[in-house]
Design a protein around this nucleic acid. Structure first.
Lengths: 108, 108
DNA sequence: ATCAAAGTACGATCGCGGTCAAACTTTGAT
DNA sequence: ATCAAAGTTTGACCGCGATCGTACTTTGAT
């Protein structure tokens, strides 16, 4: 386990990678849960229905796209939504995907 | 060739399908070109580098996601961006993807 | 009636990404 | 020193989607 995995700088954010990260329902759920919670969440504390190794893969994709920042707290890996940085690079994108759809439209 | 291919109603719009449509660079380019042009464009008039059969596939995916509306004009198939309807269903999403990124950030 | 233009339909290929299990590593308790 | 908890790594599998070529259809000129 590397203590500090590589995180892309804002200047390296790439829309294609961000979309590839967000198109997966499991990963989008992770981002949505982070946005709703408004605080850091450990990898194991998410409500997702995949194995641990698959979860690791998803977190890696999200991190490499710049959507989350990861750091260790004890044996747990905490995940932080890079909301402000994403908003700077792609204004409105995160909001459009994490905000609940208005009434009259089916949820998901 | 069916005269009027099936178009989903706004109430049937599905975020997952929209994202799956927009994650492909060729399809996103089509949407971007439509948004920039501000008018209908025929299938053959887009600047895309794939074969005709592949292009047909991409237009079908965009249509079934609700992103474009298609209608025939003579032998050409015109494509219209369903901008307002998309904005209604997923506010800000289309703008976030078709607006040029601000200076200081690499284009694509 | 012919012909070209514009797409569509149909298969086939093929690479990538999501998935898991198993083995391993690291940390923090006991 | 042991043990469990939390993730990671690796390798394998597998299905889906992007791609193309070929054949076909429809429309509009000539």
């Amino acid at each position: 386990m590397d203590r500090s995995p590589p995180h892309p700088d804002v200047s390296e954010f790439d829309l294609q990678k961000v979309l590839e990260a967000l198109v997966d329902p499991v990963r989008r759920s992770i981002v949505t849960q982070l946005a709703a919670a408004g605080q850091d969440i450990a990898c194991g504390a998410f409500d997702i229905s995949v194995s641990k190794s698959t979860a690791t893969h998803h977190f890696k994709v999200l991190r490499e796209a710049g959507l989350i920042r990861q750091h260790y707290v004890g044996t747990s890996r905490m995940n932080t939504l890079r909301r402000a940085e994403m908003n700077g690079a792609f204004p409105g994108l995160l909001d459009a995907l994490t905000t609940q759809r208005r009434a009259g439209h089916r949820g998901h």
